[in-house]
Simulated scan of single mutants.
Amino acid sequence: MADSEDKAPESAGGETLTTLDVGRIMQAIPHRFPFLLVDRVVDLVRGQSCTGIKNVTINEHVFQGHFPRHPVFPGVMIIESMAQTAGVLVVETLGPEAQGKLVYFMSVEGAKFRKPVVPGDQMRVHVTKLRQRGNVWKFSAEAKVDGAVVAEATYAAMILDS
């Protein structure tokens, strides 16, 4: 897929993919508009880490009610963006073995929200795999806007047949 995947040199832990476009993301995870919260994935190292990009725009459906005169991207949507980014990492790591499987949230720990995310922000979600035991994976994530941490969390997910 030359249009949706650019490869970089292999790293010690796994193959590095520099960019996955939204088409490749939608092949990896089942989310669709208006709930697809990852626009691009960059610097994906299979089995290790990746960065998801979410461009926050005033056209997001959540801004109709959160909050109309002071739009703030909801913290739960930031956490979901983290989870979707991790889901892409899992599917890209497992490869063909992931066919027909879904990534389900199990837990969220230590979630902290440091600064509001507002329309016009580009959120970069940095996800790192902490461990994998069987079909359970644990991750840490940080969301940043302009290099400043806006949110962080540790969470677990289970990979199951759909």
Rank of each mutant, 00 (worst) to 15 (best):
E109Y: 03
E10Y: 00
V125N: 10
G47W: 05
G23W: 08
G95M: 08
G147A: 10
V56M: 06
M1W: 01
A156T: 09
I29R: 04
L44M: 12
T57N: 08
L89A: 08
T57L: 07
R133V: 11
L130T: 05
E92M: 15
D121F: 05
K101V: 02
Q132I: 01
L160E: 09
S107I: 03
F63G: 09
M158D: 02
G95D: 13
Q84D: 06
C50Q: 02
R69H: 14
T93C: 02
Q27D: 12
R69P: 00
V136K: 01
H61N: 12
F139W: 00
M82Y: 09
R131A: 10
S4T: 14
E142K: 12
G65V: 07
A157S: 12
T51V: 15
F73H: 05
G87Q: 10
F113C: 07
I159V: 15
F73C: 04
V145T: 08
I25F: 13
G13N: 11
E109I: 01
I78E: 00
K7A: 12
D6F: 10
Q84K: 11
K7I: 13
A83L: 01
M123N: 03
Q99T: 13
P34C: 11
S140M: 11
F73W: 07
T85D: 04
M82F: 05
V72G: 05
R69S: 15
G75S: 06
Q122L: 00
A98E: 06
R40T: 10
V145Y: 07
F35W: 13
E109V: 04
M26T: 11
V150F: 03
A141P: 00
I29S: 07
I58E: 08
S140Y: 01
L160R: 13
M123E: 07
M77Y: 14
H31P: 02
F73G: 03
Q48H: 14
D121T: 00
L17P: 01
G110P: 03
F35K: 09
N59I: 09
G23I: 12
T16Y: 00
T154E: 15
I79W: 05
G134Q: 07
